[in-house]
Write a protein that binds this DNA or RNA. Structure first.
Length: 814
RNA sequence: GCCCAGGUGGUGGAAUGGUAGACACGCAGGAUUUAGGAUCCUGUGCCGCAAGGUAUGGAGGUUCGACUCCUCUCCUGGGCACCA
């Protein structure tokens, strides 16, 4: 009899390590990747192991992802839940610099530490197949991907003005520059002219944009990606320069306002500037000189006060023959559009400010909702987004959107303009002048030029270099390692030089999920069969901060691999769920802010189960929250009460009433639904409610206790396993089927119906199921209630609304 | 400036347009214990002895009924940005 066994005290430290060890030894969470019949790839973004270990902020999403995976497993899926470390790259290297250790040695320490901690929190990882991006068996294939990109013509070298972080001493991709600052260290990013490797991600702009409609991702992330791609439909309009050969081409999305154009502005980089020869030359040169000393960030940061200089030339507006003075101003950027803007001060704030600054005329060509047709003299009169055309010849009276199409047709017909689509997205700058990354597999030969390293020679191993510090010269530390860079040309065998830059960390993480199911294969980055079975990823959980970094790059690389015939899908993550952040004292946890919470001490004090449930009970996984340990005791108490419930368990089935059944099945339904939506907080709350109900009973059935344990198992895997065994059930609870709801128990026999008078609840009626649809009876019952009579006295009932089983509402007046 | 999320007790947070504040923390009172930062019970939005009133950032609106839908507005967090 289950009631007679000796009951120990609940001491997590005596349960958890023991259970973790057993799970790992038995490979309980390592599915047979070839035989699995219902594969489910449950993935969590792998961590940067750069800090001293996992903090509570990291642990939060890992736990959430694990709960989901455990739930799916119990629902009968063959869940594959792998883990690895994104340990190559600048973050790990910076940490190594900080603690003054070599990154390679450090990686061994952090690897051990991270995996130990991930074990301690009880996540159900497949420990047989971890991926570490800094191991040659992994980065061999990162280099292989680079080679595929090169072969496809998607990797190219170009000298360009690039983002340079003076502190990290390397170039950065546009995606890694946030408000003009380095994403990693916060230093002000400078512009440098350097020859660098790029990936032609812009070729995929349209597909990256369009596919967003087909994937189940949060709208927030999709919007961020859409904005980053920044597609714009517009037209390039040609303006002949008066008394000169040149034409100036201006890109605009608002050709409808072109009758209101009063000037043209070109950026200091514009080719027309170089050709200028006239009396204004000195003034122009002075201005150009001044802007040259400013970085792009400075030009933006310096505020909105417009500066500029008149060239002395005029452009002709073909539409009306008007002469538009050509100005030079640094608010026009060389790399945006055509580097030249047609100024319509009536309908663009920036143009208006420029016109005000230099006394240029303003013409109104759009009337907005306010109906104001007067001359535009104030900023708030500038009508940008909507309205109808005036003072615009054949466009008059049209809505601006209609007018835009009409004038585009007209301009194209006349040969004065050409429709174009522009994107904000720029090519992915992939090379880094750092040490700790995969060397770019390229060789430069004087005779043969750029020669890719033959695939059979991969990996190009990163040599152990004592002096791994970034140099700041624009060259990687590998540039001073002749043993590394002196090689024979693979083509002509003559002497040649290796590329000494390494690739961006984000290239590692752009494909790691393809590697997990295929870690034992040495002949290919990912096995065809395995990939077909397991990919794309079914559920991906991670931070929204990677919206335009990792998530974007992964989509790009996947598309390219599909085009090359290596994959059969082009979107890597079917579902992406962005978790919230656990913050501390209002700030994201980070070592530099000194607000990192280490989970170890809580695990020691309360156990991993308590910490897991506590974190999940804080709120929905999508929201995160401010970490306080105030309520931790309450969760510990909750688990302890579950432990103590063993005493009440009896084999006597008569202990279960219909009411008990109803509560149980309601709980199963609620918990199941909530986990599906990753609303773990309310799932836990309903388990607590059920526990409160069970605690009030003298005795409970084994059946009830079993289901309680099963529902709790994903959240508190250790204690439930222990209790499952204690009541004599078959090991392991984590391999059991998820409880099912029986609808016949969900039917209510009685309903509480609230009685409202003028919208205010005045009484509550208990109505039996068989009378619930009888409106007259319910109304009569309500009228008979003393409380209600009090409120109805002396008033007349105007209307009665009855919603069966919910509410009866009287509308009364005096 | 534009685009997203949000704003509910002392706290974390619950609520298919239908009894606002589930669940938990905290707090108060009680029981039990040699003792407890243990356990159990009761209470707990605010005002009020009560009846009742009042309450989901603010102002309107739709509705028998609004945390929920609509309009305006304020605040917080995030993304984009002299992008033409």
């Amino acid at each position: 009899m289950v009631t007679s066994r000796h009951m120990k005290k609940y001491i997590p430290s005596q349960i958890e390590p023991k259970r973790q060890k057993k799970w790992k030894e038995e490979k309980l969470f390592s599915p047979d990747l070839d035989q699995a019949s219902k594969p489910f790839y449950n993935l969590m973004m792998f961590p940067y192991p750069s800090a001293e270990g996992l903090h509570v902020g990291n642990m939060y999403p890992f736990t959430g992802s694990d709960i989901f995976g455990r739930f799916k497993r119990m629902q009968g899926w063959d869940v594959f839940e792998p883990i690895g470390l994104d340990g190559f790259g600048i973050h790990s290297e910076n940490y190594a610099l900080e603690v003054n250790q070599h990154p390679e040695e450090l990686s061994k320490v952090t690897e051990k530490r991270f995996y130990e901690q991930l074990m301690m929190i009880g996540d159900a990882y497949d420990w047989n197949r971890t991926v570490e991006t800094y191991k040659p068996e992994f980065y061999k294939w990162t280099q292989w991907i680079f080679l595929q990109m090169y072969k496809k013509g998607l990797a190219y070298r170009k000298k360009a003005s690039v983002n340079w972080c003076p502190k990290d001493k390397t170039v950065l991709a546009d995606e890694q520059v946030v408000n003009g600052l380095c994403e990693r260290c916060g230093s002000k990013v400078e512009q440098r002219m350097l020859e660098q490797w790029f990936f032609r991600i812009t070729d995929y702009a349209e597909r990256l944009l369009k596919n967003l409609e087909t994937i189940d991702w949060s709208e927030k992330v999709k919007v961020a990606q859409r904005n980053w791609i920044g597609k714009k439909e517009g037209i390039n309009i040609e303006y002949q320069v008066e008394e000169a050969e040149e034409k100036i081409v201006c890109f605009t999305t608002r050709p409808d306002t072109n009758f209101g154009a009063t000037f043209v502005v070109i950026g200091p980089e514009h080719p027309f500037v170089a050709s200028l020869q006239n009396s204004k030359l000195k003034e122009i040169q002075d201005y150009i000189e001044k802007t040259k000393n400013k970085s792009e960030a400075d030009r933006i940061a310096e505020g909105r006060k417009k500066t500029g200089v008149f060239t002395g030339f005029y452009a002709i507006n073909n539409l009306n023959g008007k002469k538009l003075p050509i100005w030079i101003s640094d608010f026009v950027l060389g790399n945006v559009g055509t580097g030249a803007v047609v100024g319509v001060p009536g309908h663009d704030i920036r143009d208006f400010q420029f016109a005000k600054e230099f006394g240029l005329p303003v013409i109104r060509v759009v009337v907005g909702k306010d109906g104001d047709t007067s001359a535009i003299t104030r900023k708030n009169q500038v009508q940008e987004a909507e309205g109808k055309m005036i003072n615009s010849s054949f466009l008059d009276g049209l809505d601006i959107h209609e007018a835009t199409q009409k004038i585009m047709d007209y301009l194209e017909e006349k040969g004065w303009g050409k429709r174009v689509t522009s994107y904000h997205l720029r090519d992915w700058l992939i090379s880094r002048q750092r040490y700790w990354g995969p060397p770019i597999p390229i060789i430069y030969c004087d005779k043969c030029g750029i020669v890719p390293v033959p695939e059979k020679d991969l990996p190009v191993e990163l040599p152990y270099v004592k002096e791994f510090r970034p140099t700041g010269t624009g060259k990687s530390p590998l540039f001073s390692v002749p043993d590394f860079y002196n090689v024979a040309c693979p083509k002509c065998s003559g002497s040649a030089r290796r590329e000494t830059d390494v690739s961006d960390t984000f290239l590692d993480s752009a494909w790691y999920f393809l590697r997990y199911p295929s870690t034992e294969f040495t002949q290919a980055p990912f096995d065809e069969k395995r990939t077909k079975k397991w990919l794309p990823v079914d559920m991906y959980i991670g931070g929204a901060e990677h919206s335009v970094l990792h998530l974007f790059y992964s989509r790009f690389i996947t598309m390219v691999l599909k085009d090359l015939g290596y994959l059969e899908f082009e979107e890597p993550f079917k579902t992406f769920f962005a978790h919230g952040l656990i913050i501390k004292d209002g700030a994201k946890m980070s070592k530099s802010k000194g607000n990192v919470i280490n989970p170890d001490k809580y695990i020691e004090e309360y156990g991993a189960d308590t910490l897991r449930v506590y974190l999940m009970f804080m709120g929905p996984l999508s929201e995160g929250g401010d970490f306080r340990d105030a309520g931790m005791n309450g969760i510990y108490r909750f688990l302890q009460r579950i432990w103590g419930l063993q005493e009440k368990v009896t084999g006597d089935r008569r202990q279960v009433t219909v009411q008990d059944q109803r509560i149980m099945h309601k709980t199963i339904k609620k918990v199941t639904g909530d986990i599906e939506q990753l609303k773990f907080n309310t799932a836990i709350a309903s388990l607590m409610e059920w526990l409160n109900h069970l605690s009030r009973k003298e005795k409970m059935s084994v059946e009830e206790y079993k289901i309680l344990l099963l529902l709790l198992a994903p959240f508190a895997p250790h204690v439930t396993e222990e209790l499952w065994e204690a009541i004599g059930e078959k090991y392991s609870i984590h391999k059991q089927s998820w409880p099912k709801t029986d609808n016949k128990y969900l039917e209510e026999k009685e309903f509480t119906v609230a009685v409202q008078i003028n919208g205010k609840v005045r009484d509550v009626l208990l109505i039996q199921k068989d009378t619930i649809d009888d409106r007259e009876v319910v109304e009569k019952m309500a009228q008979e209630s003393e409380k209600i009579q009090k409120f109805l006295a002396g008033k007349s009932v105007k209307k009665v609304v009855y919603i069966p089983g919910k509410i009866i509402s009287f509308v009364v007046s005096n």
